[in-house]
């Protein structure tokens, strides 16, 4: 049922029956290590190129989710997947071996909640019994595509974020036990004219604010009803902006706001400047740590909102700014 301008309230809320998460070496050295299903010992995954490594990462994560849920490929009605790479090669090359209808998504770092939004509407609407939501990012393939060559000797600015090597997969089902997705708030593309490609948090914060305000207005839910309002990868600077500007709007989220980009690394010790980013950031933290906490009933009701900077380096060189989007889903136990 549609409520308000941007939100759907699911009358038959789909269940997140299982998740899987695999992260890279550096992420495995972070504070959430124990929450991930698997930590890689080699970020190449034995592949010859970074693009192939990322694709393999997605494939392994997806297979792991099937295994954990004891489902076969034939049980899955749709797979919704995406990543950061051009033409979503991470997703396309990982799903080509599967016998599952596929919809490719590009929402930059917002892909995890974008896939869960669409997935829960497919399941909630009665069009599917099982939907798989899958995203990944890889530090090396992202650097190659968006920034400088890996061996290039440059300094990162204090606002720069570190792309997470990791992937997350969630299986949504019409029946079963587990936390349920009850509301979906779909964001609009917001561009506040930020042009600095090493300040993604600041570019994405306005989109996060816009979606969050729409969510509160549409649903009437109060911020303190949530045990946790978790954003994808706003990082240190973006989180700071979000919390401060939400205060000005009259919503106090100081207590319960968390950010996956700040959670996945030990910011000081691991020298990641403003924190983590990438599809795999929210993907692995949600499918790893947050899902575990939901299962343990340490969290009752949360809002997950991944934010994406829809940045294309070429168009930014042409003088354009960075559009951003944020999608939110309410998850209740």
């Amino acid at each position: 049922m549609r409520i308000g301008r941007q939100t759907v309230k699911l009358d038959n809320p789909p269940v997140i029956i299982e998740t899987s998460s695999i992260v890279g070496v550096k992420e495995g050295e972070g504070p959430l290590r124990s929450a991930f299903d698997k930590v890689l010992t080699d970020d190449t995954l034995g592949e010859k190129s970074w693009e192939k490594s990322e694709s393999m990462l997605q494939k392994q994560t997806m297979l792991l989710a099937l295994e954990k849920a004891t489902l076969a490929q034939g049980d899955i009605d749709y797979i919704l997947a995406g990543d950061l790479l051009n033409q979503c090669v991470g997703a396309h090359y990982s799903v080509r071996d599967f016998d599952i209808p596929f919809l490719g998504l590009y929402g930059a770092c917002s892909t995890m909640t974008e896939s869960m939004s669409i997935g829960s509407m497919l399941v909630g609407g009665g069009f599917a019994n099982h939907v798989m939501c899958l995203t990944s990012s890889h530090f090396c393939s992202s650097e190659k595509q968006f920034r400088n060559p890996l061996e290039y000797g440059g300094q990162r600015t204090p606002s720069a974020q570190w792309t997470v090597t990791g992937a997350g997969c969630a299986i949504l089902a019409s029946k079963g036990s587990g936390p349920r997705i009850t509301h979906v708030t779909t964001g609009k593309v917001i561009d506040k004219g930020v042009t600095d490609i090493s300040n993604m948090g600041a570019a994405m914060a306005p989109a996060a604010i816009d979606t969050l305000l729409a969510h509160f207005n549409d649903t009437g839910i109060k911020p303190d009803e949530y045990d946790m309002i978790v954003t994808g990868d706003l990082g240190v600077i973006g989180s700071d902006i979000l919390v401060e500007l939400m205060m000005e709007e009259g919503f106090d989220i100081r207590e319960n706001h968390r950010d996956c980009g700040k959670m996945i690394y030990d910011i000081e010790k691991q020298d990641v400047h403003a924190g983590g980013s990438g599809c795999g950031c929210c993907g692995s933290v949600f499918c790893g740590y947050i899902y575990r906490e939901l299962k343990r009933h340490n969290l009752k009701k949360i809002l997950v909102m991944a934010t994406g900077a829809l940045m294309n380096p070429m168009v930014v060189e042409q003088g354009e700014s960075i559009p951003a989007v944020a999608h939110a889903v309410t998850i209740e136990n």
Partner: peptide, 18 residues
């Protein structure tokens, strides 16, 4: 947003935040 900022205002604001 209630306190709508122009792009310019926002960019000045983030300069302080960064």
């Amino acid at each position: 947003m209630k306190h709508e900022m122009t792009n310019q205002e926002y960019n000045e604001y983030i300069k302080k935040k960064t």
